[in-house]
């Protein structure tokens, strides 16, 4: 109650906004009670909103004995991201974005002589200088997100090509 950051959040969002924001970013399945505490809503409110989100296929319910726990539905994340890209970009722009993302990954591969973020992390562990270790680990982190994004952009391109893109001049 005396947490001013939480009061600010509550003043600028609905209970549904907060439940969704919390459950959308959990890495492990979490119960309605856990989500309720983090979202500053009652457990019943959390449970209602979580059931609604499950019906909409935004999240998945995982039964764990008597407790139901929730995690984001990875398929929903992917499809929503593809949809956003298709609305925001034409096919030629998607192809340019794909090239940019691929370029970044190729640059890291060339710079560090590795082919995956996991390999790059191994390299960070071998480096003795702290500042260098930090920079390498940060790159490995960014690589993971970039690789995921590249997959989403490729999905969007496939969809855009199969739907026939009318915004690109015919060759």
């Amino acid at each position: 109650m005396s947490d001013p950051a939480l009061e600010d959040w509550k003043a600028n969002s609905t209970a549904f906004d907060r439940v969704r924001a919390v459950v959308d970013t959990v890495s492990e399945p979490r119960s309605a009670a856990w989500v309720a505490a983090q979202a500053a809503v009652s457990e019943n409110t959390a449970r209602d909103h979580l059931r609604r989100l499950e019906e909409l296929h935004v999240i998945l319910a995982v039964e764990d004995g008597a407790t139901t726990r929730y995690v984001p539905d990875p398929l929903h994340t992917r499809l929503e991201s593809v949809r956003e890209l298709l609305e925001a970009r034409r096919l030629d722009e998607l192809l340019a974005l794909k090239a940019e993302l691929q370029g970044r990954i190729e640059d890291w591969e060339a710079e560090f002589g590795v082919t995956s973020p996991a390999e790059l992390r191994g390299l960070a562990a071998e480096t003795r200088r702290a500042a260098e270790t930090d920079a390498i680990r940060e790159t490995a982190n960014e690589w993971e997100t970039t690789a995921y994004r590249l997959g989403v952009v490729e999905d969007a391109i496939e969809r855009s090509e199969s739907a026939g893109d009318h915004d690109v001049a015919p060759v």
Partner: peptide, 12 residues
């Protein structure tokens, strides 16, 4: 998937 989870966090 660390990339997907980070993507979701950035969106939130």
């Amino acid at each position: 998937d660390a990339g997907a989870a980070s993507h979701r966090a950035l969106r939130a």
